[in-house]
């Protein structure tokens, strides 16, 4: 079942006088529960496409459809609400909030998503998620003292604690060595499968494709190939 559709999306950036078309009419759809990998050369517009899909920036033309909603016609507050409740994000560098403990990072996310859970329920939910990613023992630690892999585990926990429908990941393993990358991808694919989360992931790493259900290759601002494994 199609959960997410990107329809003829174009994006042009103005660099001074020069207008540059980075995305030249992209079509793709995400099937529920699948992990879709987005690959392509550096500068081909992968991150740009991901942020447009996630409603972090708007498309110059075309439509972004999620369930029965059209992101291109929504106002910023509506998109923010959607992002806060239905989307999760993992970035290349974990981008945790430096002044919050591991536990607080996740509580903040529940807070943003306006979770209906009571305080102690939130705390046990946080604990559950941290156990899932194997970080429960570092609950009280601040990001500065965590290793890259540990940070990324916390970032993953933060991205899914509010039970989003779609997870957007921009090179989630690029800052990690090969061993850690495998672990993180393993974790990510397990979690998204059990929680039935649809994932769009940008990656550079060939090895990571093993965890994807589908690979979309973009080149020169257009979809080059769409392969289902």
């Amino acid at each position: 079942m199609t959960l997410f559709t990107i329809d003829k999306v174009r994006k042009t950036f103005k660099n001074g006088e020069v207008e540059e078309e980075i995305l030249k009419g992209i079509n793709l759809s995400l099937k529920e529960g699948e992990i879709t990998a987005l690959v392509g050369a550096s500068g081909s517009g992968k991150s740009t496409l991901l942020t447009i899909a996630a409603g972090l920036q708007s498309a110059t033309d075309g439509q972004v459809l999620f369930e029965d909603q059209n992101l291109t016609t929504m106002n910023t507050e509506q998109i923010r609400k959607l992002r806060a409740s239905k989307f999760g994000f993992v970035f290349q560098f974990s981008h945790l909030v430096p002044f919050l403990t591991v536990e607080e990072q996740l509580l903040l996310m529940l807070d943003i998503a306006e979770s209906p859970l009571k305080k102690h329920e939130q705390q046990s939910e946080v604990h559950r998620l941290l156990q899932l990613v194997g970080m429960a023992h570092r609950k009280a630690a601040y990001p500065a003292v965590l290793s890259g892999g540990e940070k990324q585990r916390v970032a993953i926990a933060r991205a899914i604690i509010h039970q989003p429908k779609v997870l957007f990941a921009d090179e989630p393993t690029a800052s990690l060595d090969s061993q850690r990358s495998q672990e993180i991808m393993q974790l990510l694919s397990e979690l998204t499968t059990t929680l039935n989360i649809t994932t769009l992931m940008v990656t550079h790493d060939e090895e990571m494709l093993a965890y994807a259900d589908r690979m979309i290759k973009i080149s020169d601002g257009a979809v080059l190939s769409n392969t289902l494994y």
Partner: peptide, 13 residues
């Protein structure tokens, strides 16, 4: 600024 960007991305008003 980077931090504010992240917070906005994850949905902080």
């Amino acid at each position: 600024i980077g931090l504010y960007g992240i917070l906005k991305a994850i949905g902080v008003k």
